[in-house]
Amino acid sequence: MNPRFRQRFLRNRAGLFGLGVVLLILGMALLAPWLAPKDPSQQFFDGLTLEGKPLPPGGQFLLGTDTLGRDLLSRLIWGARASMLVGLVANGAAVLIGMLVGASAGYFGGWIGGLLMRFTDVMMAFPALLLAIALAAILKPSLWIVALVIALVNWVQVARVIYAQTLTLAQKEYVEAARALGAGNRRILLRHLLPHLFPTLVVYGSLGLSTTVLLEAALSFLGVGVQPPTPSWGGIINESQSYFTDAPWLVAFPGLAILVTSLAFNLLGDALREALDPTLR
């Protein structure tokens, strides 16, 4: 690792904080069996009131219980596994594909660009819900399928935005200059365009994490992803949203978990970008 890079990164306190939180959440996911105070799937008889209402935070159940009388804290800790997996894999893939397609289309233009962008149009109109329902019946439900479907759907937005940015960037003086000096396409794309696209990728990488985690729940609801009782953050929100006014903790805590995670990734991403290329201000 470039020592200057490390030095610059270590000086960025917000970035370090972001890194710390990301590591903490990943650790939580990995160590869930030891960290969770209770079995996340156990429906406790005393976890509901006699009328069947979930319990608010405090007491035996630190963050309260869900509508089945399960310990919310334990479900949040275990839920980090599914949510982080989908968030990182699916969103990561979406950002990567979107960047490749958008940047190539914007840089090369011509019939390649046209083809790529019309393919993007098709995918934007792609009825993902139908695909999810079809897959749910054919395949064994799994997180990887959810990740695949999300990646398939989410990359198009990234591609459109990256495409628009590349269109202007490709006309910039320094790109012209690099081309005049005989730099290859690959070099120009990697050295001269990518650093300028990086901020956008950070936005999609971090904000996209939130939407991905929520989308996972919507798809799992149709039967493609994690099946109950396996918890995920989005799933907890999804199954409790209509109880929101009555039991706000069921939406607030998982929502907070998603918010903190995506913020942490954003701080980390910004810090990485600055450390990579401090001239971009």
Partner: peptide
């Protein structure tokens, strides 16, 4: 129902679908 079945050793995998 799944939890009750588990108590007698019957492992029921859930499929919640449209």
């Amino acid at each position: 129902i799944q939890q009750d079945l588990a108590q007698i050793g019957v492992k029921a995998e859930l499929k919640t679908q449209a």
